[in-house]
Write a protein that binds this DNA or RNA. Structure first.
Lengths: 121, 121
DNA sequence: ATGGAAATGAAAATCATTTTCATTTGTGCT
DNA sequence: AGCACAAATGAAAATGATTTTCATTTCCAT
């Protein structure tokens, strides 16, 4: 489970450090990489175990992975056309930290997304 | 989609307001209620739409439902035991509004969750 | 009653994820 | 090089939650 890890990692980086297993798989196929879906899942799991990668959940329950530590951002998504803008979440980081502290939580992460209609829609 | 909603709701109450669709179904069966799994799913969805019920995700991605207090709030979820605390998100509201404005988005909503390990875990 | 709309549920379809298992690859040893 | 054995790989099947389909049943207003 070692030859594929770096390849999966590379894809995650290029993807902006934010993708589901299925997406990683599709991306790798598109780039001509030869890898099986099973291996993608296994690599992602081992990367998570090694705390190199973080796992979150989309609204629909699909697991999404991202490099941890790497500057993370949030999304502003258009309900109409699906356009997505990466935005800063400084306020959120602080909020998350404060709240976690107040309730004694450790190893804290968070998700946040804004959605609405973009100017064009 | 109206005759079953109250029954599903009643079960959610008795369950301590925290159960997956499958669990609600099993509970109802055990109590002799006659209902189909499909209907349980549909009722839960409609209750979510009506904001009577809240939906979260377990670690494994399964959706769990519970009665919600009504006022818009966010969650602080423990990765270990699943305990959930409802928290205020004033900072988020402002952030969302600011960001949306900056990019000209309308009809804006948002999601935000914090997760980590609670003091006990 | 009667017709049509809404609700229901059984069974099939979907879809992400996991498991199984046979094959391939890598590594160390002689 | 040749050999053995462990780890890694991936195709296909299994799993499990959720959704869809579609025929039937229940509600209501006429």
């Amino acid at each position: 489970m070692s030859r594929s890890n770096p390849r999966v990692l590379a894809i995650l980086e290029r993807a902006g450090g934010f993708a589901s297993a299925q997406e990683v798989y599709r991306l790798m196929q598109r780039e001509g990489e030869s890898i099986g879906l099973t291996t993608v899942y296994r690599s992602l799991q081992s990367l998570v175990n090694d705390k190199i990668v973080d796992v979150l959940r989309r609204e629909d329950g699909e697991a999404i992975y991202r490099l941890c530590g790497g500057a993370h951002h949030h999304h502003l998504v258009c309900k109409g056309c699906g356009e997505t803008i990466e935005i800063e979440g400084g306020a959120i980081e602080k909020w998350a930290k404060t709240m976690a502290q107040e309730f004694g939580f450790r190893e804290v992460g968070h998700t946040a997304e804004i959605f609405g209609l973009c100017p064009k829609c």
